[in-house]
Design a protein around this nucleic acid. Structure first.
Length: 426
DNA sequence: TCTGGGGTCCTAGGACCC
DNA sequence: TCTGGGGTCCTAGGACCC
């Protein structure tokens, strides 16, 4: 049996933790740049606010004082997520952290008759230890555990289990095909045309037909809905790519602004790679203007991949290549809205070593210089970790706020990670 | 005025091999 | 009419997830 533990309205729950006055009020959290709604309280959902709704369309509710809004505070959410996951790991040796707010558990060590109690115990402990409410779905496969979790949320219960065959069928018959894990926008349209409406109807399709007409992924989804395990709980290795991208606070056509943004994102990405102890084989840089501009002809969106000589996490090297990339795709007289940097094909640094020896001759870097720069990187990371972000930074990041920097006007304090922002009890 | 960010996996098709 | 067969590896693009 598998469990899916999923935090309820996670970002909103994090904000409410330090704002008990908002417990029963409509609250939403916005994406970066205060762009769109990414988390909603139950009361906000009842107001008709949709996931992904642009903020400017619901601003009126805020002015009328019917809605409280927060900019996203990922420092806070990540810290609380870590606490939730650590709590879970006390209950189960086999936890797959699937996203910031959910985890799969393999429940092989629990007796069937104890599963429901176990679910309640997990939820109660997480609530007590972290203050975050969760729902628990228990079922014979991960896909069904997803269904169970959704069902729990819909019925406003803490635990839902689909252990009994009759419960599984009943739940699937009430479950919209578009809400099935693995069935996205495009497939919903295709399947609806075939007359499929519910998860149950999907589960009745011949898996081999599914594989032939779609792919092995959809075949597995069908099998999992029938209770056949196709996806195990797995502990993922380190990520294979690292992306840093932001929409700008204001559009800009200046090369210097873009260079500052691209360099800043490249630096952040390199920091993350070093923290993971991985090295990138290539970098992707992309810039684009707004999709929503009325002047469609002036839309511009372009990106380029440039491989590194050998895998690296060296900021100096990565900035240099990122700037080369930008030079190749930059076009004048465009109103740029967003830049993206992705480090690709990340490999374990330990594995990068033999390659280094192999290609030494072709490399513009001497190994002495590389060694020295690696030490500088570690030092910079250490200083920033000890004294806070941007205690020491690269000149190319810019020293003052620029037009491209994101808006986040309604951010809560970093209650749990910054000593000067601790909440005060009156 | 204003519309997010960060990931994974699979397939098709081309290059290349014997 | 006939012009082999069977592999592997890589990449771009498209689907999905939260």
């Amino acid at each position: 049996m598998f469990a899916l533990v999923d935090c309820n309205s996670f970002f909103v729950s994090c904000e409410r933790l330090f704002r008990p006055d908002l417990a029963d009020k409509p609250v939403v959290v916005l994406s970066n740049n205060d762009g769109v709604v990414v988390s909603r309280s139950k009361e906000a959902k009842l107001l008709g606010i949709k996931m992904g709704e642009p903020f400017f369309q619901i601003k009126q509710l805020v002015h009328q004082k019917r809605l409280t809004v927060f900019s996203s505070n990922f420092t806070l959410y990540s810290d609380l997520s870590r606490r939730v996951m650590q709590t879970l790991e006390n209950f189960c040796p086999n936890v797959e952290i699937y996203s910031i707010d959910e985890a799969f558990l393999n429940l092989f060590h629990i007796e069937i008759n104890d599963l429901n109690n176990f679910g309640h115990k997990i939820a109660a402990t997480i609530l007590r230890w972290t203050g975050i409410p969760v729902s628990v779905g228990i079922a014979p496969t991960k896909t069904l555990a997803k269904v169970a979790n959704e069902t729990a949320k819909k019925n406003e219960t803490i635990v839902c289990n689909l252990i009994e065959e009759s419960e599984r069928i009943k739940s699937l018959q009430k479950f919209d095909i578009g809400d099935v894990w693995g069935i996205g926008r495009k497939l919903v349209v295709a399947f609806r045309k075939l007359g499929l409406r519910t998860a149950y109807e999907l589960s009745q399709i011949d898996p081999l037909w599914m594989r032939k007409n779609y792919s092995v992924v959809q075949e597995k989804t069908v099998r999992e809905l029938c209770g056949e395990i196709c996806f195990e709980v797995d502990i993922p290795q380190s990520r294979r790519s690292i992306q840093v991208s932001r929409s700008f606070g204001e559009t800009t056509s200046r090369y210097n602004d873009l260079e500052e943004a691209v360099a800043t994102f490249a630096i952040r990405a390199a920091e993350k790679a070093r923290a993971d102890r991985t090295a990138a084989s290539a970098i992707y840089v992309h810039i684009n203007t707004s999709r929503f501009n009325s002047n469609k002809e002036n839309y511009y969106s372009n990106g380029i991949v440039i491989p590194f000589h050998k895998p690296t996490s060296n900021t100096i090297e990565i900035i240099a290549v990122a700037r080369d990339a930008l030079r190749k795709i930059f076009v004048k007289n465009k109103q740029y809205k967003k830049a993206t940097v992705i480090l690709l094909n990340l490999i374990d640094v330990k594995l990068a070593v033999p390659q280094k020896l192999l290609f030494e001759k072709n490399d513009s870097y001497s190994s002495e210089r590389r060694e020295l720069e690696n030490r500088i990187m570690n030092l910079v990371d250490e200083i920033n970790q000890k004294f806070g972000r941007r205690s020491i930074f690269w000149a190319v990041e810019g020293v003052q706020n620029s037009a491209w920097q994101a808006r986040r006007n309604m951010m809560s304090p970093c209650y749990t990670t910054n000593i000067s922002e601790l909440p005060i009890a009156h």
